[in-house]
Amino acid sequence: KKTSWTEEEDRIIYQAHKRLGNRWAEIAKLLPGRTDNAIKNHWNSTMRRKVEQEGYLQESSK
C-alpha cells in the first residue's frame, strides 16, 4: 500500500543521495518499508525538483 512520504523520509533520502548518489538499493536499506524503485520514483517526481529549486534543506544541515 502506498503511504505518503514524510519529511523525515525526505531528509534521509536527501542526505543519503548526497552521499551515495543514485544508488537506490543502498538508500532503500535506510528506509524500511520503501523499495529502491519507490524511492527512485519519489526522487525523480518530487524531490529532485525541490532540491534544484530551493537548495533543499541546506539551511537546516548546519
Rank of each mutant, 00 (worst) to 15 (best):
K1T: 09
K1L: 07
K2N: 15
K2Q: 13
K2H: 06
K2V: 12
K2A: 07
K2P: 06
T3A: 11
T3G: 10
T3F: 09
T3W: 05
T3M: 15
T3Q: 08
T3I: 15
T3S: 12
S4P: 10
S4R: 14
W5G: 01
W5L: 04
W5A: 01
W5H: 00
W5Y: 07
W5M: 06
W5S: 02
W5K: 02
T6H: 03
T6A: 05
T6C: 04
T6S: 13
T6V: 03
T6I: 02
T6Q: 04
E7R: 07
E8L: 08
E8C: 07
E8G: 08
E8Q: 14
E9S: 01
E9Q: 04
E9Y: 00
E9V: 03
E9C: 00
E9H: 02
E9I: 03
E9R: 00
D10T: 09
D10A: 06
D10N: 07
D10K: 05
D10C: 00
D10M: 04
D10Y: 04
R11K: 14
R11S: 09
R11V: 07
R11G: 06
R11Y: 10
R11N: 14
R11F: 11
I12E: 03
I12C: 05
I12Y: 02
I12K: 14
I12Q: 07
I12D: 03
I12F: 00
I13F: 03
I13Q: 01
I13S: 00
I13G: 00
I13W: 00
I13P: 00
Y14P: 00
Y14A: 11
Y14N: 05
Y14G: 06
Y14S: 12
Y14W: 11
Y14R: 10
Q15A: 15
H17R: 06
L20S: 02
G21Y: 02
G21P: 07
G21I: 00
G21K: 04
G21W: 02
G21Q: 02
W24K: 01
W24E: 06
W24Q: 01
W24M: 01
W24V: 02
W24T: 02
A25G: 14
A25Q: 14
A25E: 14
A25D: 08
A25F: 10
A25V: 10
A25R: 09
E26I: 00
E26P: 00
E26R: 03
E26K: 06
E26N: 03
E26T: 02
E26Y: 02
E26C: 03
E26H: 03
E26D: 09
E26Q: 08
I27C: 03
I27P: 01
I27Y: 09
I27D: 01
I27N: 00
A28C: 09
A28H: 01
A28M: 04
A28G: 06
A28N: 02
A28L: 01
A28T: 01
A28K: 02
A28Y: 00
K29L: 14
K29H: 07
K29F: 02
K29N: 06
K29V: 07
K29W: 02
L30V: 04
L30P: 03
L30C: 06
L30T: 04
L31Q: 00
L31I: 15
L31F: 03
P32I: 05
P32V: 09
P32E: 13
P32R: 06
G33I: 00
G33F: 05
G33E: 14
G33R: 05
G33L: 10
R34T: 07
R34V: 07
R34P: 00
R34E: 01
R34D: 02
R34S: 03
T35V: 04
T35M: 04
T35W: 03
T35G: 09
T35E: 13
T35Y: 03
T35L: 04
T35C: 09
T35H: 09
D36R: 02
D36N: 03
N37M: 13
N37P: 03
N37Q: 12
N37E: 14
N37G: 13
N37S: 11
N37D: 14
N37V: 14
N37I: 15
A38M: 11
A38S: 12
A38Y: 01
I39R: 00
I39Y: 00
I39G: 00
I39M: 00
I39T: 06
I39N: 02
K40N: 08
K40P: 01
K40S: 08
K40D: 03
K40Q: 15
K40C: 08
N41F: 08
N41D: 15
N41P: 00
N41A: 14
N41Q: 10
H42I: 00
H42R: 11
H42F: 03
H42L: 02
H42W: 05
H42A: 01
H42Q: 02
H42M: 02
W43G: 01
W43A: 01
W43F: 12
W43N: 03
W43I: 04
W43D: 02
N44W: 01
N44E: 14
N44M: 13
S45K: 11
S45Y: 15
S45T: 15
S45V: 11
S45I: 12
S45C: 11
T46N: 07
T46Q: 10
T46R: 08
T46P: 06
T46H: 10
T46W: 10
M47S: 05
M47R: 05
R48W: 11
R48D: 11
R48T: 09
R48V: 13
R48H: 07
R48E: 08
R49V: 14
R49W: 13
R49S: 12
R49I: 09
K50G: 07
K50S: 11
K50E: 08
K50R: 12
K50V: 07
K50Q: 05
K50C: 12
K50I: 11
K50M: 09
K50L: 13
K50F: 05
V51A: 11
V51H: 12
V51Q: 09
V51M: 08
V51P: 07
V51G: 12
E52F: 08
E52G: 09
E52Y: 08
E52T: 13
E52S: 08
E52V: 12
E52C: 07
E52A: 12
E52M: 06
E52Q: 09
E52R: 10
Q53Y: 06
Q53I: 07
Q53C: 12
Q53E: 14
Q53M: 07
Q53K: 04
E54V: 09
E54R: 10
E54D: 11
E54I: 05
E54Y: 05
E54A: 11
E54S: 12
E54T: 12
E54N: 12
G55V: 10
G55K: 09
G55R: 10
G55D: 10
G55S: 14
G55P: 09
Y56W: 09
Y56P: 14
Y56Q: 13
Y56D: 12
Y56K: 13
Y56H: 09
Y56F: 12
L57M: 11
L57A: 12
L57K: 14
L57C: 11
L57G: 10
L57Q: 09
L57D: 14
L57V: 14
Q58V: 10
Q58P: 13
Q58I: 08
Q58R: 14
Q58C: 08
Q58G: 14
Q58W: 04
Q58A: 14
Q58K: 13
Q58S: 11
E59T: 14
E59H: 12
E59P: 07
E59Q: 11
E59C: 05
E59W: 07
S60C: 10
S60K: 09
S60I: 13
S60A: 12
S60T: 14
S60F: 12
S61L: 12
S61Y: 10
S61I: 15
S61P: 09
S61K: 15
S61V: 15
K62N: 08
K62L: 11
K62R: 15
K62D: 08
K62M: 10
K62Y: 08
K62C: 05
K62Q: 15
